[in-house]
Design a protein around this nucleic acid. Structure first.
Lengths: 141, 141
DNA sequence: CTTAAAAAAGATTTATTTGTCCTTTTTAAA
DNA sequence: TTTAAAAAGGACAAATAAATCTTTTTTAAG
């Protein structure tokens, strides 16, 4: 469903959100260590998210990644689209060039409602929401 | 969501089903031409589906691909799992090694119901069903 | 102003997926 | 029994995704 890069990105964003709420910035090493994810690869992903203004960073000593108030309000679908593009939510499930309600592919009506459901959820979960939920539970990232 | 190979495989299976109902076998060239899909690549995919007993074939002149009665009854999820594995339906959305109702990842409860919905649909649509629906409509493959 | 710590950037490697090409096997018809 | 048409199989090539390594830039503290 999501690429590895995308999964890493979402998990990292939540981690950074939690840390930000604790008043701390996070470094790539800290993040990659806790998420068990390749360091340099994660760095690239975070770069991309910074450029897209989905997370924030400062260089130099005492620098690192954090979320601004604006970043906190962004919904997960932004991260997904930023990294994987919008094909998952917008494209035809079977890859047909045209596929719509009026000209549907053979799986359209079976898959569409559920895919829309996922898309809706992703458009309505902010990073802040996810970080809050995560903090409340005692689960892993 | 699905790999290209998987999309090609599903579309090809439906095409072959339709042709089979018309009493005809289909060759790779015919299939790849009508689906607009790379010939040799499709051939590999069909090989795999034959081995998994999801479609049937005979070699030699007047040979080609077709669906036995058994093949017709197979549900789409078999094709998907055969080609892409079961990660899409069984694995954690965020790629966590453990993720369950009692120990969920941050997206679990948002995504799970819909993913289950898709999985359900795929487990309940036979190739014959899809071929029938396709034939009834005047849509493309 | 120097130093060190951090992200940013760029170049490169590895792995996987997608795609091609050529040979072998099977099989039906002439 | 020869021939030709088809799938099967294997080796290879290209494109994309995942991952690494090295250098540059920024920045805060001493």
């Amino acid at each position: 469903m999501f690429s590895k890069a995308c999964k890493y990105g979402i998990r990292a964003a939540i981690f950074i959100a939690v840390k930000t709420r604790e008043g701390q910035k996070s470094g790539v090493v800290e993040i990659s260590d806790t998420l068990n994810v390749p360091k340099a690869f994660l760095a690239k992903i975070l770069q991309k998210l910074v450029k897209a203004d989905l997370i924030s960073s400062t260089k130099g000593p005492y620098g690192g990644f954090y979320l601004s108030e604006e970043n906190m309000k962004k919904t997960v679908d932004h991260i997904i689209t930023c990294i994987d593009g919008d094909d998952l939510f917008k494209g035809c499930v079977l890859g047909l060039p045209v596929c719509s309600e009026s000209n549907p592919c053979p799986l359209h009506e079976k898959v569409y409602p559920f895919r829309e459901g996922i898309y809706y959820q992703m458009r309505h979960q902010t990073i802040a929401d996810l970080a809050y939920d995560y903090d409340a539970s005692q689960n892993r990232l």
